[in-house]
Amino acid sequence: AQASVVANQLIPINTRLTLVMMRSEVVTPVGIPAEDIPALVSMQVNRAVPLGTTLMPDMVKGYA
């Protein structure tokens, strides 16, 4: 199954992502693919992302 990017902590709005904030997990619905984690580093989220939330393309500025 495809692993997705999941928030490893609460990520406040406009925060630049770092590796420690993200983990890969097989979840439904599928979000951003886990292999994109390196590309997500330093991108900003456009909303607060609670712990355990799957990151979707529309949550990350410049990803989609």
Rank of each mutant, 00 (worst) to 15 (best):
A1G: 14
A1L: 15
A1T: 13
A1P: 12
A1S: 10
A1K: 10
A1C: 06
A1H: 10
Q2G: 12
Q2C: 05
Q2D: 13
Q2W: 12
Q2H: 13
Q2R: 12
Q2V: 14
Q2P: 15
Q2S: 13
A3S: 09
A3R: 15
A3L: 11
A3G: 13
A3F: 15
A3E: 08
A3M: 13
A3T: 07
S4E: 00
S4V: 02
S4T: 04
S4R: 00
S4H: 01
S4K: 00
S4L: 01
V5F: 02
V5D: 00
V5H: 02
V5Q: 01
V6R: 03
V6L: 06
V6G: 00
A7P: 01
A7Y: 01
A7M: 04
A7H: 01
A7W: 03
A7S: 12
A7I: 06
N8W: 04
N8Y: 04
N8C: 04
Q9C: 04
Q9L: 10
Q9R: 13
L10E: 13
L10M: 12
L10H: 14
L10R: 09
I11P: 00
I11Q: 01
I11G: 00
I11M: 05
P12W: 05
P12Y: 06
P12F: 07
P12A: 12
P12H: 09
I13Q: 14
I13C: 07
I13T: 14
I13E: 08
I13R: 10
I13A: 15
I13M: 09
I13N: 11
N14C: 04
N14W: 10
N14K: 06
N14V: 03
N14T: 05
N14L: 10
N14E: 09
N14G: 14
T15S: 12
T15Y: 08
T15F: 07
T15G: 08
T15L: 05
T15E: 11
R16I: 11
R16Q: 15
R16E: 09
R16Y: 14
R16V: 15
R16K: 09
L17Q: 00
L17V: 03
L17I: 11
L17K: 00
L17E: 01
L17M: 07
L17W: 02
L17S: 00
L17H: 00
L17N: 00
T18Q: 11
T18D: 09
T18S: 12
T18K: 13
T18C: 04
T18W: 03
T18M: 12
T18Y: 04
L19N: 07
L19M: 13
L19R: 10
L19I: 10
L19E: 10
L19S: 07
L19V: 12
L19Y: 06
L19C: 03
L19F: 07
V20H: 15
V20A: 14
V20S: 06
V20E: 13
V20Q: 15
V20D: 14
V20P: 13
V20I: 14
V20K: 15
M21A: 05
M21L: 05
M21R: 03
M21S: 05
M22V: 11
M22N: 01
M22Y: 02
M22A: 00
M22G: 00
R23D: 06
R23H: 05
R23A: 09
R23I: 07
S24Q: 09
S24L: 03
S24V: 11
S24H: 10
S24M: 07
S24W: 06
S24E: 13
S24F: 07
E25Y: 06
E25A: 13
E25N: 15
E25G: 11
V26C: 05
V26K: 10
V26S: 11
V26G: 04
V26Y: 08
V26P: 08
V26W: 15
V27R: 15
V27P: 01
V27E: 01
V27K: 06
V27N: 03
V27T: 11
T28C: 05
T28D: 12
T28F: 13
T28A: 12
T28K: 07
T28I: 15
P29W: 03
P29K: 06
P29I: 05
P29E: 07
P29N: 04
P29D: 05
P29A: 04
P29L: 05
P29G: 03
V30N: 10
V30C: 04
V30M: 09
G31Y: 02
G31W: 03
G31T: 01
G31C: 03
G31R: 02
G31Q: 02
G31H: 02
I32M: 03
I32C: 04
I32E: 01
I32H: 00
I32W: 03
I32V: 11
I32S: 00
I32Q: 00
I32L: 05
I32R: 00
I32T: 01
P33G: 06
P33H: 10
P33F: 08
P33L: 14
P33S: 08
P33I: 06
P33T: 09
P33R: 14
A34D: 08
A34E: 10
A34Y: 07
A34W: 06
A34C: 05
A34G: 14
A34T: 11
E35H: 11
E35G: 15
E35R: 15
E35V: 14
E35S: 14
D36T: 12
D36S: 15
D36K: 14
D36V: 09
D36H: 12
D36R: 15
D36C: 05
D36Y: 12
D36E: 15
I37Y: 03
I37A: 07
I37Q: 06
I37F: 03
I37D: 01
P38A: 10
P38F: 11
P38T: 13
P38K: 13
P38W: 07
A39H: 12
A39D: 07
A39Y: 11
A39K: 15
A39Q: 12
A39S: 07
A39P: 03
A39M: 14
L40T: 01
L40I: 15
L40M: 05
L40E: 01
L40S: 00
V41H: 05
V41Y: 05
V41P: 02
V41C: 04
V41D: 04
V41I: 11
V41M: 05
S42E: 10
S42R: 08
S42Y: 07
S42M: 09
S42V: 03
S42Q: 13
S42N: 09
S42D: 13
M43Y: 12
M43S: 08
M43H: 12
M43R: 12
M43N: 05
M43F: 10
M43T: 06
Q44G: 09
Q44E: 13
Q44W: 10
Q44F: 12
Q44N: 07
Q44K: 12
Q44A: 06
V45W: 00
V45I: 07
V45D: 02
V45Q: 00
V45L: 07
V45N: 03
V45M: 07
N46K: 06
N46Y: 09
N46L: 11
N46M: 13
R47E: 08
R47W: 06
R47G: 06
R47T: 11
R47V: 14
A48M: 14
A48L: 08
A48K: 09
A48Q: 11
A48W: 09
A48Y: 15
A48P: 08
V49A: 05
V49P: 02
V49Q: 02
V49I: 13
V49C: 04
V49N: 01
P50C: 04
P50W: 05
P50A: 11
P50E: 15
P50G: 09
P50M: 14
L51F: 13
L51H: 14
L51P: 11
L51Q: 14
L51I: 13
L51R: 14
G52D: 09
G52C: 03
G52E: 06
T53I: 11
T53P: 01
T53R: 07
T53Q: 11
T53L: 08
T53A: 13
T53S: 13
T53F: 10
T54M: 03
T54R: 04
T54A: 05
T54C: 04
T54S: 04
T54W: 02
L55I: 10
L55F: 10
L55R: 00
L55D: 01
L55G: 00
L55E: 00
L55P: 00
M56N: 09
M56T: 13
M56Q: 15
M56K: 08
P57T: 06
P57H: 14
P57N: 04
P57F: 09
P57D: 06
D58G: 10
D58S: 13
D58K: 11
D58Q: 12
M59E: 03
M59K: 01
M59P: 00
M59S: 09
M59D: 14
V60W: 01
V60L: 11
V60H: 00
V60Y: 01
V60E: 01
V60F: 06
V60C: 03
K61E: 15
K61R: 13
K61V: 15
K61S: 15
K61A: 13
K61Q: 14
K61D: 15
G62C: 04
G62R: 06
G62H: 13
G62I: 05
G62W: 08
G62E: 14
G62P: 06
G62S: 09
G62V: 06
Y63E: 05
Y63P: 04
Y63A: 05
Y63C: 03
A64G: 10
A64P: 10
A64V: 14
A64M: 08
A64T: 15
